[in-house]
Amino acid sequence: MITSNSVMPSIMTRLDKYQAVYQFKFKRLASTNSFLKDIAGFTNHPVTCVADCQTKGYGQQNRNWASQENDIAMSLMLPMPHIDNSIRLPDGLSQRVALAIAEALAEQSHQNIQLKWPNDIFINNAKVGGILIELERAANGQWLIIIGLGVNLQPPLQHPDASYKRGWFIPNTSRNQLIGSIEAHLIKTLFTSAKITSAPLNVNAWQARDLFTQGETIYVVSTQNKPQIAYYQGINLQGEAMVYYAHQPNKLVRLNSGTVSLRTYETNEDGTN
């Protein structure tokens, strides 16, 4: 929903190396993901939405994502191919998105970009960004994927989720150039010939940026159970995290994104610092 003090977006079609892209830009907006949901279905081309200030951003499990003016708050909407009612995200999509964004950030900074499964962005073991991927069905029946991204470009505000140290990304280019690079990497990686691609996940590329090392002791946190101690084994081609639980050290368990997340072992047993 457009807030009363928003500037109406400049809407344009830009033909770049990969696709024509519709772009919406706001000074102030409640949520870039929510805005794209409101306009879903008007085109088969990629659509991006960027806000200088996002007032009601949200992340996984509808947690608040606090952002400040001139941080990065943006979303990308892509059409899904025709599918039946068993709609779900393609295997490894979340990790492919995270890798594309990490590559874009790495090109624009001398900082070491790390990734924490399923798709959090870290620098120096501090969280600087988060990704939310949602499925939306438009009024015309078309299914779409909406990818929301928030990146701190300045020291962050106090955040309700105190599970991580908070950091910020220091680009060596302008904010607009950084946003353009992220957009280009995502579209190149995910969208060709008017459909979402299903290229295999590059597990080696993920491993090179993985926040956790093979065999590292971690906590597995879910909304239903207390955090459990586990030993991290990396991810597979389906984008699943693989762990051995301390109480079942001989049974390899594959984790889907869903309501499960990973925490460093240095955190408390309730999942907080």
Results as ranks from 00 to 15, higher is better:
5 N>F: 07
6 S>E: 08
7 V>P: 04
8 M>Q: 11
11 I>M: 15
12 M>F: 08
12 M>Q: 10
14 R>A: 12
14 R>Y: 14
15 L>V: 15
16 D>C: 08
21 V>H: 00
27 K>C: 09
27 K>V: 15
30 A>T: 11
32 T>S: 05
34 S>I: 15
35 F>C: 14
35 F>E: 03
36 L>W: 12
37 K>G: 08
39 I>F: 01
51 A>D: 00
52 D>Y: 04
52 D>T: 01
58 Y>V: 10
59 G>N: 02
61 Q>H: 12
61 Q>A: 05
63 R>Y: 13
64 N>Q: 10
65 W>C: 14
66 A>L: 07
68 Q>N: 14
75 S>R: 06
76 L>Y: 07
77 M>P: 03
79 P>N: 12
81 P>Q: 13
83 I>S: 12
84 D>F: 00
85 N>A: 07
85 N>V: 05
86 S>R: 15
87 I>R: 11
88 R>W: 03
91 D>G: 08
91 D>A: 14
93 L>H: 06
95 Q>A: 12
97 V>C: 11
98 A>Y: 01
101 I>T: 03
107 E>L: 07
110 H>R: 15
111 Q>M: 05
113 I>L: 05
119 N>H: 15
127 K>M: 06
133 I>W: 01
136 E>R: 13
139 A>V: 12
141 G>I: 00
141 G>P: 03
145 I>D: 01
145 I>P: 00
148 G>W: 00
151 V>D: 02
151 V>W: 04
152 N>L: 15
153 L>K: 00
154 Q>M: 07
154 Q>N: 05
156 P>Y: 00
160 P>G: 07
161 D>M: 03
162 A>M: 05
163 S>M: 13
163 S>L: 06
165 K>M: 06
166 R>A: 10
168 W>L: 12
169 F>T: 01
172 N>Q: 11
178 L>Y: 03
178 L>S: 05
180 G>P: 00
184 A>P: 15
188 K>Q: 10
189 T>K: 07
194 A>R: 06
196 I>P: 00
197 T>C: 04
199 A>T: 09
200 P>A: 08
200 P>E: 06
204 N>F: 08
205 A>M: 09
205 A>V: 07
206 W>I: 03
207 Q>W: 00
215 G>W: 06
216 E>H: 08
217 T>W: 09
218 I>R: 04
219 Y>D: 01
219 Y>V: 02
220 V>N: 00
227 P>G: 02
228 Q>R: 11
230 A>H: 05
231 Y>S: 07
232 Y>T: 00
237 L>Y: 05
244 Y>D: 01
245 Y>Q: 15
246 A>Q: 12
247 H>W: 03
248 Q>C: 09
253 V>P: 03
255 L>K: 09
256 N>W: 11
259 T>F: 15
263 R>M: 09
266 E>I: 13
266 E>R: 10
268 N>P: 03
270 D>C: 10
271 G>D: 08
272 T>M: 11
